[in-house]
Design a binder for these strands. Structure first.
Lengths: 355, 355
DNA sequence: TCCCAAATCTGAAACGTTACAGGTAAGCTA
DNA sequence: TAGCTTACCTGTAACGTTTCAGATTTGGGA
C-alpha cells in the first residue's frame, strides 16, 4: 500500500515537473491549490475536490490532501472563489449612523461576529446617515454583488428595502418586523410586551397618567408595537395616556431634556413614563429633576436598555433588558440559513423583555 | 473627425463580432469591461486603461468610454481586481469586544465609514474577545491577505501586533501610541492632558485627596499617560493621590460600584475622583451614593466621555469629551495614506480634551 | 478472454481584471 | 521616398478557483 502510493507519487511527480513551472513557494507567498497539487502529485482539480470532501475522490487521497493542506496552512483565496463562483462570503450589516441607542451598534456587531467567526464569512459594515436615502447602501450592495446576505435594522411597516431585496432574491434578515405580506427572516424584541409590562408596572405603583417615549414616530415598525402594548395596559388599568407628540427616540438628548422639563412643569404632567431607550431615559431624568420633581415620588420611570449601564443609574429606574447581542446572533444565524435556502418562515424569532 | 471615429467603430465592430461570443447583457447580469469594449468597439485593455485615465489613451476615446461606463452603470468587479492585483480594497477594524466604553465601537465605525465611503474601500470588522489572543485576528488577516490596511485599538506600550505588522510591512494605524521605537501611524486622545486638567479642576475646587479610575492597569499605553498627567497635577497641587489598585476600566460595572462603596466608606476616602470612562462614572456615582456621600459636597467627580450622555447625567459631574468619531476619521485617513506610501511620521496625530 | 461499469482522477476553460509586449497608422525629418 | 517617432490601440497571459467533459484504472461478470 505504502509502496503503491509512493510509486504513484513518483510517476506523477516526474510527469508533472515541466520546465519553467515554478512550484517552490517564494518567501511570503501563500500556498494555492497548485502548491498542494504539486506536493501530492495530483491535479489541482482533484485537490480542490478532495478539500471539499467530494464523493468522487478516494478516501486515501482525501486524507492525504487534507493533511498537506493543514500542514502548509492552506487557505482558499477568496478572490479566486468569488470570481469563479460569484459567492462573496460576506455578510453586510447596514446601519443607521444616527440612531445609536447606547451600545446598540456594538452589541449587534459583536453578536453577528460571534456567529460568523465559526464560518468563512466576513462582516462588512455600511452605515448611512439619516439624511440619506436608506435604499442607497442596499442598492449598492445588490448592484455590485458585494455581499451574500444583508442584515439591517430600523425596519418599517412598509419597507422599500425589504421589497427590493425580496424582488431581487437577495438573502437578508431584519432587526424588526414588517407588515407587508412578504415573509422574510427577522428577529425582533417584543416591544409590545415590553410596553405592556412597563405600563403595567407603573399602574401597579398607582400611577394613572402615563406617557411613553417611543421609537421614531410611526416610521419604524416597533413604534406600532409599543403603542399597542401601551394602549392595552392603559385600557386595562383604566388610566390615562399622556401624549407627547414632538419628541421621540431620534430627538437629540438636549431637546428631550428640555421638552421633558416643559411637560413636567405643565398642568397636565404624567406621573409615570415608559421610555424605550437607555440614553433617552437619562435625558428624561434630567428634565424631570429640572422641573423640580422627584423620581419615585412625583413620577416613576420605566425604561428599556441594551447595556447594563442604567442598572447602576441613580435615581433607580425600572429597567427591562433588550439583549441586542443575542439579536445579532439570531440575525446572523438567520441570514446564513436563508443563504442555504431555508424557508424564511422558519427564520423568524422574537425575544422577550427580561427584567 | 466624427467620420473617422465612426469608420473606426464600423471596422472594429465587425471584426469583433465572433460567432458564439455572447455580448448582450442577460437579465440581471452586470456589465464588465467586455460589455463596454463591445459597445465602444474597442479592446478590453483599452477600456480598462481609459477608465483609469491612462496617458496612452486618446482623449476622445477616454470620454467615450467613460460616458458608456456611466450610462450602463459599470462598476469594476472587486474579485477580478483583487485576484489580478492582490489589492483587496478592504480596511479591517480589529476590536476588543469586551472593552466597549459606551459608544466607542459605534463611533469609531461611523468615523471610519465616513472617510471610506468616498473611496472604493469597504470596512470589515473583526472583534476578538479579551480571553483570546489579540494576535489571532491580526495573523489571520495577514496570512490570508484579507485587507489592505488595519485599524486597531487598545494599543500597548510594547505591542506584539505592531511589531508583527511592521515586520510584515502591512499598513496599519493604531488608536493609541506605543513606546517601542517603531514609527507607525496613530491617532490618540491626549490622556495625559485629560488627567492633568481633570485633577487640576478638582484641586481648584479645593479637593486634596484624589483618586483616579484609569484604563486597564499598565497593559494599555494610555494608562501611562493618565498616570503621568495625574501625578503631575497632584505634585503641583501638593495634594495626595489615593490609590485604588484592584479596579480599572475593564472591571464590571457591578464590581466598580461595590468597590467604590467600600472605599468611600473607609477611613481613607478620596474627596475627588478622576474617571476615564463614561459608563464607569455612572457606576462610581452609584457606589458613592451607596456610601451615603453626596457628589459636589463630599466628593467631586470628573470624567471623560465619548458620547454626550453624561452631559445630562444628574448629579452633575465635570466632563471632558473624547471625540471617538473624529478619531475614526483620522485613523481611516491615516491607513489610507499609509497604503499610498506616505511616511508614518506624517500620519501621527493627537486630539485634545474638550470641555 | 473480453467488455462494461464504477471508481478515481485529469486538463482545459472560464470568471473579470491588469500587465506585458507588441502592432499600426499618421506625421515628421532628411 | 524611406525611415523614424509618436500616439494610440491590441491580443495574450496570468491571478486562484470551480466546472465541464472526458481519461484512466480496476474489478467483476459473461
Amino acid at each position: 500500500m505504502a509502496f503503491v502510493s509512493q510509486n504513484n507519487m513518483k510517476t506523477k511527480d516526474s510527469s508533472r515537473i515541466r520546465p519553467g513551472e515554478a512550484v517552490e513557494l517564494a518567501e511570503g507567498e501563500r500556498p494555492t491549490l497548485k502548491t498542494i497539487a504539486f506536493m501530492a502529485g495530483l491535479g489541482v482539480t482533484t485537490v480542490s475536490r478532495a478539500l471539499k470532501d467530494a464523493p468522487e475522490i478516494g478516501q486515501a487521497t482525501k486524507s492525504r490532501v487534507q493533511l498537506i493542506a493543514r500542514q502548509i496552512g492552506y487557505r482558499p483565496n477568496r478572490a479566486g472563489v468569488r470570481l469563479r463562483t460569484g459567492k462573496t462570503n460576506v455578510i453586510s450589516l447596514v446601519l443607521n449612523a444616527q440612531s445609536e441607542i447606547m451600545g446598540l451598534t456594538s452589541n449587534m456587531v459583536y453578536g453577528i461576529s460571534e456567529v460568523l467567526s465559526e464560518t468563512p464569512y466576513h462582516l462588512t459594515v455600511t452605515p448611512y446617515s439619516v439624511e440619506n436615502d436608506p435604499m442607497q447602501p442596499i442598492r449598492y450592495i445588490v448592484e455590485t454583488g458585494s455581499a451574500d446576505g444583508i442584515i439591517m435594522s430600523r425596519t418599517e411597516p412598509d419597507d422599500a428595502r425589504v421589497r427590493y431585496l425580496a424582488e431581487h432574491g437577495i438573502p437578508f434578515a431584519t432587526h424588526g418586523r414588517t407588515e407587508m405580506g412578504i415573509e422574510h427572516p427577522f428577529h425582533d424584541f417584543d416591544n409590545e410586551a415590553f410596553a405592556y409590562k412597563s405600563a403595567k408596572s407603573l399602574l401597579l405603583k398607582g400611577r394613572r397618567k402615563i406617557a411613553m417615549m417611543a421609537g421614531p414616530t410611526s416610521a419604524v415598525t416597533y413604534h406600532r408595537h409599543l403603542e399597542r402594548g401601551f394602549s392595552r395596559a392603559i385600557e386595562e388599568g383604566d388610566a390615562r395616556a399622556i401624549l407627547v407628540p414632538d419628541i421621540d427616540v431620534d430627538t437629540s438628548l438636549g431637546r428631550i431634556r428640555d421638552r421633558t422639563e416643559e411637560i413636567m412643569s405643565g398642568p397636565n404632567r404624567p406621573d409615570g413614563i415608559v421610555c424605550c431607550s437607555g440614553s433617552a431615559a437619562i435625558a428624561l431624568v434630567a428634565g424631570i429633576e429640572a422641573a423640580g420633581l422627584k423620581i419615585g415620588k412625583d413620577v416613576d420611570l420605566v425604561s428599556k436598555q441594551s447595556t447594563d449601564v442604567l442598572k447602576w443609574f441613580r435615581p433607580e429606574i425600572i429597567v427591562f433588558n433588550e439583549d441586542v447581542r443575542h439579536a445579532g446572533r439570531e440575525l446572523a444565524r438567520a441570514v446564513l440559513r436563508r443563504i442555504e435556502g431555508v424557508d424564511a418562515r422558519e427564520l423568524q424569532s422574537l425575544s422577550y423583555p427580561d427584567e
